[in-house]
Nucleic acid binder design. Sequence first.
RNA 1: GGGUUUGUAGCUCAACUGGACAGAGCGACGGUUUCCUAAACCGUAGGUUCCGGGUUCGAUUCCCGGCAGACCCA
Length: 556
Amino acid sequence: MTLDGILAEAFAKAFPGIETGGVRALPATDPKFGDYQCNDALRLSKKAGMKPREAAEKVAAALDRAAFSKVEVAGPGFLNLTVNDAWLDGALARISASPSLGVKQTGAGRKVVIDYSSPNAAKQMHIGHIRSTVIGNAIDRIYRAIGYEVVADNHLGDWGTQFGILIKGYRDCLTQEERDRLTVATLEKCYVLSAAKAKEEDGVWKDACRAELVKLQQGDPENLALWRRFIDISIGEFERMYARLGIKFDTYRGESYYNAAMPGVVERLVSAGLAKESEGALVVDLSSENLGVAIVRKSDGGYNYTTSDLACVESRVAEYAPEKIIYVTDDRQKLHFAQFFAICAKTGVKTTLVHVPFGLMSYQGKAISTREGNLVRLDDLLSEARRRAFEIVKERGGDERLAEEIGYGAVKYADLSHDPATAIDFDWDKALALEGNSGPYLQYAYARVCSLMDKAGCDGSAPAPFAPRTVHERRLALALLEFPGAVARAAAAYKPYVLAEWLFQTSQAYSAFYQNTPVLKSEGTTRLSRLRLCGLFGDMLAKGLHMLGIETPRRI
RNA sequence: GGGUUUGUAGCUCAACUGGACAGAGCGACGGUUUCCUAAACCGUAGGUUCCGGGUUCGAUUCCCGGCAGACCCA
């Protein structure tokens, strides 16, 4: 039985008839307290009408001691638990025998759509795109790991006024050669030139841009073909980035995919009495929910994000019937999503909608933009990451491929290793850290395990019983048992950093163990059981890193 | 002006949603390679958890009022 189960029984016996609301054994905050602690007697003492300490004593008395070598009540009413060898050995054997290494397959037979990365077409990806891309992909991988069927959709910004500017610019700002060998970089330049001319006093250029846009919207074949070409070139370039990052989307459905459905969406909002005219626009009044009003059709008859997101959600529900749709975007869009979700609640959309916001990335203290001239291209960041990693890797005979695995791992880990709620200012040295709490630290720990296994001539699954007996072995063993919980918490909260933190702490426990405990030089069953512990750690580390999208080279 | 959000070591961040003496990494200082990969390990220094109240056995966490930054909406 699990420790939580044993505790639940003891609480039921000690406080019959009292709703406990789930009692848990948490890892002890300090090893001197034991292996686990339970704080729930404190929480429930009031309900039971007794002093906290007394309540804890009562639970301790009711506790089945078979799993423990020591149980004590401490402080105001903490229950400190030390598990015995038999329990620990058995728990390790069970988790190791599970194909998922104990990770609960709570998503089996269920489906989610995850919407992430979503760059604007005709622009190069820059460091500001890292967060949605990397965090979204980690959530994607974690959900797959807990058994969900995931549809990863890239909701490209592929429609809007910028295409009028682009088409005009393409025709009149580019050389024939540039038009023939069109790249995203060229498109970006073309946009900047054309947009600048659109600001001229006489307004001639601006009107021409608008005319091109109208033609595009009305389905003019030439403009439509140009637009299609811009999109294809953009996706080609994005996929080059995603390939570098090991990311694969199931679909690339941009805003344009939902164009045809938007009038219907608005009609239904009107006939349901949700949308009303206001100053020429159609709006949904959400002021009773303190969310202001959401425009669903502008006064010029155009649609906006809210409309296209509503069309998008309808389409996804109809096609996939997902349990949830998860949107990973920066937190400037919080209000937009709150409004959009509120409208979905009113129209009875049959899925759970989740917004996973993160703080915007700035660079040198300023918002990232072409105008500020502080735009660091993602391509350049990755190349710099590879270059820095190669400087170190080459001393040990590593190649470019290894430098990529390490450099890109460092970039990803830098963003995945902490709660993304706060805005961050991009810093080369922080993004590319190779030591301490970093991607390479974890990869290094993995390479050392692999090396150990190779030298031992076994893969760690040799049928030797687990028997962690030294302090360092025990600490590592206890940390390993927390793997499934870390994955579950990361998934439930949409926070990959919870998993990243487990990986780091567990790797620290491994490093300390490795430094102080001979493995290959130990003998007999001790050697075998230590190898098995190392093997389990290696398997979990690889699985966890995979969930974060970080490569696991066997040699560094 | 309204709203959201953040404030913890010099810097970057944790603290499992109210629990024990607030922990890691970087940086600083000192130590550990005849020994399984030193991208590692061990140790030292560093804190009024922005400020002031409140709630209770107990607050970095919850509530109220300020201050500061970031963003969103008029």
